[in-house]
Amino acid sequence: MEILFAIAIGTVVTASVYLFLSRDLLRGLLGFILFGTAVNLAILLAGRVGPMRPPLVDAAVLGAGAANPLPQALILTAIVIGFGLTAFALILTLTAHREFGTTSVEELAEAETPKVPANTAAAATRREAA
């Protein structure tokens, strides 16, 4: 079971790294989501194999086969936080697509070396448009 888990985690990480290497922001974001999933699986695995004592409740009361709830609580929190961050990054990507018509990292990065002092010019045009 542990080996199966390890292989699954490895596969998901491979896929996510492949997506990270893409120049498209949306793919990079999908890669991040996959990466987060792989890490959550890793926490689940780590929580099971470790020398765990059941927190708060006595082992005798719980009986055999009771799962340790701590990794699950951690994963739940991580999923919620990951959800928030992903949503935010998605909104940013959408803004980039709407306002500049591209989600390619390279095309966006052309803004890096502006011909005019960008802060004033860009901010001013934006204010006029709004």
């Binding site: 928030g84 949503a87 935010f88 998605l90 909104i91």
Partner: peptide
């Protein structure tokens, strides 16, 4: 509030 704000932005 958070979910609604995010979704309405999308």
């Amino acid at each position: 509030g958070t979910i609604t704000a995010m979704f309405l932005a999308l």
